[in-house]
């Protein structure tokens, strides 16, 4: 356990991640579920960026007289993932709007009930 303080950032991220998961599982509202997925997504991004950090390093923009940079590779991956994330979120929200048109509700259980009746 001698590395205990160095692991705290990861633990905070795990807590955030589990909150996202909790929102997705516990709530029946479809918009709330998408928000939960977003929270989960941001925490995964944070995990990557945390791993990329080098103690004493700076942002990976090359300049004179700086020797130590943070790792640019996770930054690239997450940069694209964020934009893709918003695109997929938009797709999910579009589906929610269509579900609302078809069923008149966005609560999971009410949709199930309506399904059973038909």
């Amino acid at each position: 356990m001698e590395q205990f303080p160095g692991l705290i950032p990861y633990w905070v991220i795990m807590v955030l991640m589990m909150m996202g998961l909790y929102i997705v599982i516990a709530h029946g509202n479809l918009i709330k579920k998408i928000v939960g997925l977003n929270v989960f997504q941001v925490s995964v991004f944070l995990l990557y960026i945390t791993m990329a950090k080098v103690e004493g390093g700076t942002a990976p923009i090359l300049a004179e007289g700086i020797k130590l940079y943070s790792n640019p590779l996770p930054h690239v991956l997450i940069l694209t993932a964020i934009v893709v994330g918003v695109a997929t979120t938009a797709l999910g929200l579009a589906l929610v709007v269509r579900i609302h048109n078809a069923y008149g509700t966005i609560e999971d259980e009410e949709i199930d009930k309506l399904e059973d009746q038909t």
Partner: peptide, 13 residues
């Protein structure tokens, strides 16, 4: 955590 590009994108997106 030094990821200025990512921060930029996250703030905008």
């Amino acid at each position: 955590m030094d990821a200025v590009d990512v921060a930029f994108t996250e703030a905008a997106v």
